[in-house]
Design a protein around this nucleic acid. Structure first.
Lengths: 143, 143
DNA sequence: TTAAGTGCAAAATCTTTGCAAATGT
DNA sequence: ACATTTGCAAAGATTTTGCACTTAA
């Protein structure tokens, strides 16, 4: 099935109207195998979408569970398409992320599970983020 | 030894002049056993320090290795005094943090070590942040 | 004395809000 | 037709920069 149809269905499934800006955000995110920062998205989308609409689109998508937000080590938000396992109420994003300090890309290290932790009594856990910072594969090659 | 003397020495050790704003920042950070957000610091310091000076003070302290910055799950910066083990070039902050989604405080869970990870070939690791989000001790009692 | 540090004002960013026009269903 | 969504403009918030005045050493 072509991507465009998948995206149409995805929007329809969440009672969102199928509009050009939304489809272009999905297309860009789908084309990248890593989480993409907001400024980066803006650049990739060019004038296909207004800056404000991008903010609102990302917020809506996150609420609906279509994408999830990963915080970079520098405090910027990065966005990636959710796997089908994500729902509106529970994101399945429990793997390690890697934030390259040079290209700023955020990689999902799906292979690495987040280890079990012994949280102190009285504390309730909702989410665990494990972010490794350093230099990625690509940037190490380039030098 | 009284705190003020310790703080004087700390500043002197890093070739920083001993000034009122810097001492008040140290005093506040010292009085709190958890990492404190920038807006929170501003509030706690009141008009003891200009907002811009606070930004600059925190930046200087971080460079010198006097404090370290912990990113909250929502992307805001939180600051805490470094243990004596921190140097300018290497922060020893390799423990788990807990970010309460209600009071927004960031706790250092010193007891919990960050587990060893098998990072993929070609990637270089500089820093590992493990942030648990949820509801803390206190807020669970009140809530 | 003098280099470092501070505070104010102002610029540059980043993010949100209000509202009229456009658009999908 | 009508509620949703968009884009612009403008407000708000956050962070940085410039520069003259102050202060620690």
């Amino acid at each position: 099935m072509p991507d465009i149809q998948i995206h149409n269905q995805l929007l329809a499934k969440h009672n969102l109207k199928i509009t050009a800006p939304r489809l272009s955000v999905l297309a860009v995110l789908n084309s990248r195998e890593m989480a993409t920062s907001q400024p980066n998205l803006e650049q990739l989308l060019g004038k296909q979408i207004d800056r404000v609409t991008l903010y609102r689109t990302l917020a809506t998508f996150e609420e609906k569970g279509i994408i999830h937000k990963v915080m970079g080590a520098n405090g910027t938000s990065n966005y990636a398409l959710c796997s089908t396992a994500c729902t509106q109420h529970q994101h399945h994003d429990q793997h390690v992320h890697f934030n390259c300090t040079q290209c700023l890309n955020v990689y999902c290290l799906d292979k690495l599970e987040i280890p079990q932790l012994q949280i102190p009594d009285g504390f309730t856990t909702n989410k665990i983020d494990l972010m490794v910072s350093g230099v990625c594969n690509n940037c190490n090659l380039v030098g």
